[in-house]
């Protein structure tokens, strides 16, 4: 394994009794990058990430974090990473600053260093006014910031964030995005899971789309869009009667398309002409737009709703 690899999984599998949550994942995360794991609820994102931060037993396969084997050296790994879990996992018996102090103790950081770090983290994450507040009195956004401060207490080499902005108000989300960009600039490695496409597009250098325990694709968002969708998307509605006619014509001209209920999405690759399509389609509701990661996601993972 090369020195610039932060995380490497080799055909990793996670089973809960008979249920296969992660089904043979091979991934490589490079140091200094922000890597996003994108997928619908129940895709296996958290299960995969939990194995990475050694919170869960690996059923099969190999996993290396910072060159250390997750099956054996989980103690060393845990001392070099920071984790912000989905439900924050704060200690509700203590106030904010005591949460940080205790966590520093658990990580066996000496008291002097811990006090210094905590002071600067409280400032960095705008938590100074809440230092002595009990956990349950804090808002969702503040609790998340505290969880982030806690994750940074040991100056980690990798930060894991599980759905970092789920349940936050727009202001908190924006603030968090900016914060993560700052971390990126400081050359920190970030691994996050999300089901918000904008988040992945905004923050991630590379994205893996995951569904039903498998990785469907991995690359830069821009490249994924180009590869799986193309340059543009033409969207139109058709009644069920005309639908077959349109689809046949689109096939004739070798256009790639996808149908969702009565909506047709035509993917225009570079070099393909959109004029022909306007000749074919007589519907009035035609829109041309730039494709996003959302389209890649829906194309690969399908349009069906998922259970939690």
């Amino acid at each position: 394994m090369s020195l610039d690899t932060a995380i490497e999984t080799k055909h990793i599998i996670k089973k809960y009794n008979d249920f296969v949550a992660v089904n043979g994942v091979d991934l490589k995360v490079i140091k200094g990058e922000c890597f996003g794991l994108l997928g619908p609820n129940g895709a296996g994102k958290s299960s995969l990430m939990k194995m990475m931060y050694c919170h869960s037993v690996i059923t099969e396969g190999e996993l290396f974090v910072l060159g250390l084997n997750a099956k054996k050296n989980f103690r060393e790994i845990k001392s070099k990473i920071g984790v912000v879990p989905q439900d924050n996992l704060l200690d509700s018996d203590f106030n904010a600053i005591d949460n940080l102090r205790l966590f520093a103790k658990y990580q066996q950081i000496d008291d002097y260093t811990a006090a210094e770090t905590i002071r600067s983290l409280l400032k960095l994450l705008k938590l100074e006014d809440f230092a002595n507040s009990e956990i349950e009195t804090l808002s969702g956004g503040t609790q998340r910031r505290l969880a982030i401060a806690r994750a940074l207490i040991n100056s980690p080499e990798i930060i894991f964030l599980d759905e970092p902005t789920t349940g936050l108000d727009p202001q908190s989300r924006l603030w968090l995005w900016n914060f993560m960009k700052q971390v990126k600039e400081m050359n920190g490695t970030i691994f996050l899971t999300t089901h918000y496409i904008e988040e992945a597009e905004e923050l991630c250098d590379r994205v893996a789309i995951m569904d039903r325990g498998k990785i469907l694709c991995v690359d830069q968002p821009r490249i994924l869009i180009k590869q799986h969708i193309g340059d543009e998307i033409i969207e139109f509605f058709s009644n069920p009667v005309d639908l077959n006619y349109y689809l046949n014509r689109l096939k004739e001209f070798n256009y790639e398309y996808q149908v969702y209920n009565n909506m047709v999405l035509v993917f225009l690759k570079s070099g393909q002409d959109s004029k022909k399509i306007f000749d074919i389609i007589k519907s009035e509701k035609v829109t041309v737009r730039k494709p996003s990661l959302n389209d890649v996601f829906l194309k690969l993972a399908g349009y069906n709703l998922r259970d939690e």
Binding site: H55, E76, K78, S79, L89, D93, Q108
Partner: peptide, 9 residues
């Protein structure tokens, strides 16, 4: 709380 502590070493 144990899950929280298990985030550490």
């Amino acid at each position: 709380i144990y899950q929280h502590i298990l985030l550490t070493r």
